[in-house]
Amino acid sequence: MEAKRLGSNTINNLPPSIIETILCLVPFQEAARTSILSREWKYHWTKIPKLVFIEDVVKYEYKERFSITSQAKRKLFYAINQVMSMHQGPINEFSLSTYVKGLCIEMDHIIDNLSRNNNLKKLTLDMSGYWLPESFFSLHKLTDLNLHCCRLDVQPTFTGFDRQSES
């Protein structure tokens, strides 16, 4: 009984930076589930600076993706917006893998939100055919950009992302 209580106190007394590191190493959905561990852990997941969302479309055949995506997309983007509205602190890394064809207003709002956050250093988007919004060019602190199947219309006034790296 004493060892069990000591273990519980030990995990609750970890420094916030250690807890953040641990939560960044597990899938985001699992990190959010740690909120049930204790009162002390209830909101730790809201401070994770790395947000990764991956829609599981591997199990569907290519042509079936088109018929199921609208409801699945609404749920996915609703979940992302919920997470971002509850998020506290900077978002340094954001990754999203899903199928989107052409324009996507929900994703445009997420990019807008990330550009206002102004701390994003790493962005990974795997979104077949998605047209990046103009606010994408406001992500000046990006140091790592990975776009797969996204469309980019370079603005004539765009002079590039900030090349200075912070130590």
Rank of each mutant, 00 (worst) to 15 (best):
D108V: 08
A32T: 12
K4F: 15
R33Q: 12
S128T: 04
T157C: 07
I19H: 01
S115R: 02
K63Y: 07
T46G: 03
C149T: 10
L23A: 00
L25F: 07
A72W: 06
S128E: 15
L14A: 05
N81V: 05
S165F: 14
A72S: 03
L114P: 12
T157G: 04
T34I: 00
K42G: 04
S165N: 06
F161W: 10
M107G: 03
F136P: 00
I22S: 01
S35F: 02
V52Y: 12
F94V: 04
K122M: 13
Q82W: 10
S135W: 10
A72D: 03
D144E: 15
N9M: 02
G160E: 06
E40T: 12
G102V: 01
L120D: 08
I80C: 04
P156E: 01
I22W: 01
E20Q: 06
S8Q: 15
K73T: 02
C149R: 13
F94S: 07
T159H: 12
V58S: 13
Q155S: 10
H140T: 11
C149E: 11
E64L: 12
P27G: 13
D144N: 15
L25M: 15
F28A: 05
A79M: 05
L125E: 04
Y130E: 03
C104M: 13
T98I: 04
C104H: 15
P156R: 02
D126G: 12
N113G: 02
S167G: 12
T124R: 12
I22V: 15
K101N: 00
P156I: 10
I91Y: 07
S67D: 01
E2K: 06
F161T: 11
T21K: 15
P16L: 08
A72L: 12
Q82S: 13
F28E: 01
L37C: 09
K59F: 14
L123H: 06
I110C: 11
Q29D: 07
Q29F: 01
H148Q: 13
Q29H: 13
C150M: 09
E2I: 03
A79D: 01
I36S: 13
I18D: 04
L76D: 05
G102K: 02
H87D: 02
T21D: 08
G7E: 00
L145S: 14
L51H: 12
E40L: 10
F136S: 02
Q164I: 10
V26Q: 00
Y130K: 04
S17P: 08
S70Q: 10
S115H: 04
R33C: 07
S38E: 08
E64F: 06
N9C: 05
L152D: 08
R5Y: 01
K63F: 03
W45K: 05
C150W: 13
T159F: 11
F137A: 03
N13E: 10
K63E: 11
R39V: 05
L14Q: 09
R163D: 07
L103C: 10
N12Y: 08
I36M: 11
D108G: 00
